[in-house]
Amino acid sequence: MLEARLEQSSVLKKVVDAIKDLVQDCNFDCNDSGIQLQAMDNSHVALVAMHLKTEGFALYRCDRNIALGINLVSLQKVLRAAQNEDVMTLKAEDSPDALSLVFENSENDRISEYDLKLMDIDQEHLGIPETEYGATVKMPSAEFQRICRDLSLLSESVAIEATKEGIKFSCTGDIGKGAVTLRQNPNVEKPELGTTIELQEPVALTFSLKYLVNFCKASGLSNTVTISLSNEVPLLIEYEMEHGYVRFYLAPKIGD
């Protein structure tokens, strides 16, 4: 059986908020490393991989692997009843048909108990190869979100080029074109506001801005975002949490 307690309900609320518009039904795989999730959108263009590690839970017990088949819209309805600071306890039997969620407020004078019906989801699991990326860029997540939003008003696609000078996002659309270049700037005082680039080789790829804007819903999970690129392989966008992560993979657009 599973029993997992989060000190802050906001952890799970934010994660579900970040992925609910990309995938609808997915398995939360509970095992001794924590709770993991891997799901692709319907078009198989994007994949989200999430891991809430055991260390992030105030209490974590999982006797054997349990797959919780969950509709994220339904889960979000239940999570709306949890205040960010509430302690959240998840419980499920082995091969469960429901997930129990208990929210307790910090004054310990309100306890809310919900059962969420589970679904049978036979999801194919993808093998994501370990990749040495040509370029790994770390920047403020708000900065990346702003660039994606601004350029998505001009075009459906963005060309991302990483060189030792910096990272350049450029696009061309019906009304014109735009480009944003971020130079390497470690910002020693406030590292989370800096932009750092590790370059093995220059890379240049094109991606759909619709998906990038969607991924940026996860910006609330971390002040920084790490973007990993290599020519002709999917883009990796990672939001690191204290005890886990949310990663998005996006297939490139192969142009003429």
Partner: peptide, 14 residues
């Protein structure tokens, strides 16, 4: 317009 690839071309299903 660029052709959008899918992840199946890059990630094998287990």
């Amino acid at each position: 317009e660029h052709g959008q690839e899918t992840l199946d071309a890059f990630f094998g299903s287990l």
